[in-house]
Write a protein that binds this DNA or RNA. Structure first.
Lengths: 207, 207
DNA sequence: ACCTGAACACCGTTCAAGT
DNA sequence: ACCTGAACACCGTTCAAGT
């Protein structure tokens, strides 16, 4: 949320039509719904009953439909928030750790994001227009975050320069996505190996 | 369906408990349900109402639940049938075309299978026990089919020998899986390129 | 043994009434 | 302008009655 020139709230970045003015109670309800939906999606999956989300937020079902006419709108909004949080974590980690370790920790954080969103993969391929802008938002937020961490690690001499950051990101994404079962632990190990390779690896085979 | 020693029908390969004896009308209904489900899944997706499938088969909803207590049982049964059909296509193609072309055509047939099953990918990762044996069945049926086509094509001098057939299969699978939109045409072109590479490619970079 | 379909429970969605 | 929740439609699932 940002504020308009006259001090009232706008809905920039929430997926709601730009320029609309939102009443204070509505604003608070939208926040409550996002928090509730995140918890319910984590507990019961993205197909959880709308009533469960409304109850978790302490609101009527009608309020859910007012702000998020389609279930996919709510899913997309929660996803945007989680993407933004993950991007913000890059700054936090960069401030707290040395460049090489900040990069390593953020990549593991990224594994969490993708692993949690595995159920979303099918939705993204569904053609629902609500998801149209999501990959773009994903790129827009996460790629710059990674590139900054990456450049810092290279400058610090902790990471070799002959690796493409975008390729690294999609490789980590694939690892986090693939196996349904005990995939998270496996993905973590694989990503750790990759990071070691970034530090100690020899020259890559020419593509 | 196969027959037991006394000439009655058994349910081997249908996913129904082994050794059970099935009345003639029940046997016919199971077939009708599989045919109907395949059509309805293709038309309305795997989440189509059970009533729609029952109606398409000209049967009551209770009959669907009698033979397939869970929706996933029906999906799994249809999938097994489609896998078996695709495996059988390998024999047909091998008989009709020269080895190199048989391989190329079968790989395109495989693209159809995977593309049609894209909606199933999420289901496979759902942990539903009904799908547990499906990947195994997939391997058991499709890998031998491919290996035979592949070996014949290599023996015929149409395909170089320094390619791993399983790797080829999973690469084609990934291509057929990835893009939600006009992915089928794109996958076809990519697979065609792969096949050309099998024929005319230079030495692969050492892994 | 098997089939049918009415009956029940549950969920998505709307909208009149209230604030 | 927004919120509530009863009401309606629709779908999954069961089970008593029929064959």
């Amino acid at each position: 949320m940002t504020r308009t020139a006259d001090g009232r709230k706008s809905t920039a970045g929430t997926g709601i039509a730009k320029g609309r003015v939102v009443r204070t109670d509505a604003e608070r309800n939208i926040g409550a719904l996002l928090t509730a939906a995140k918890a319910v999606f984590a507990r019961s999956g993205v197909d959880a009953p709308v009533r469960e989300i409304a109850e978790e937020a302490g609101l009527g079902v009608g309020t859910v439909y007012r702000h998020f006419p389609q279930r996919s709108d709510l899913i997309a909004a929660v996803s945007r928030q989680e993407i933004a949080t993950c991007a913000y974590a890059a700054e936090t980690l960069a401030a707290k750790y040395k460049p090489g370790e900040a990069l390593a920790r953020w990549l593991q954080r990224y594994v969490d994001l993708i692993a949690a969103k595995r159920g979303l993969a099918a939705a993204l391929h569904s053609g629902d227009p609500a998801y149209n802008q999501l990959p773009a938002y994903f790129d827009e937020r996460l790629r710059p975050a990674l590139h900054e961490l990456f450049a810092a690690a290279v400058a610090d001499g902790n990471v070799r320069a002959d690796v493409d950051a975008d390729e690294l990101l999609s490789a980590v994404g694939s690892l986090a996505m693939s196996p349904g079962d005990k995939g998270l632990a496996r993905a973590r190990r694989m990503v750790a190996l990759l990071v070691d390779g970034l530090r100690f690896g020899a020259t890559l085979p020419a593509s």
